[in-house]
Amino acid sequence: MPIDPPAPREPIDPDVTSAEAHEAAAEHLSLRHLLRGRGDIVGSIAAGGAIGALARWGLAELIPHGTGEFATSTLIANVVGAFLIGVLMVVVVEVMQPTRLVRPFLGVGVLGGFTTFSTYTLDLHEMLREGHPGAAAAYLVVTLVGGLAATAAAIAVTRHLLVREGAQ
């Protein structure tokens, strides 16, 4: 009876896998060398990032908030993005045949551009500065717990729906 090979596992860093990091480590570490042979990847990430950021901006226009107020649009973008990267990584690693540009375009680009950590910290800073510590605490916790739960749920649900038992 043949022994199934171990199922592929998602990397820790979805943007730069350990294989990519080792490949880069073997090269000279100047920016020029990092760019060489990765023009298509970098271009895909730029295009994806622009699309993601436009969507985040659109959402912020749709659900505006004043300075120091609870930032619902950023919260939604970050939690939705955290869910989608869970779906994406299971599909890319466990369902699809390996491709060169899907993960950079959708994961590093679109989802990286759609979600934001800097606006999260600035929103927190503004809520604290404007004297809304309660809103800041709620925003901090809901974003964090919501995001982590969304990623974990997305990985589990996608694997359950799309990855057949004993496949590979």
Binding site: P14, A82, L111, T116, T119, L148, T151
Partner: peptide
């Protein structure tokens, strides 16, 4: 520079994924 460059330079989706994967490992 703020909404667009810093927004895209930083990421919450990757941050969340890494935290969950570290926990799973």
């Amino acid at each position: 520079v703020g909404t667009s460059f810093c927004g895209a330079l930083t990421t919450f989706s990757t941050f969340s994924f890494e935290a969950v994967r570290l926990t799973q490992e």
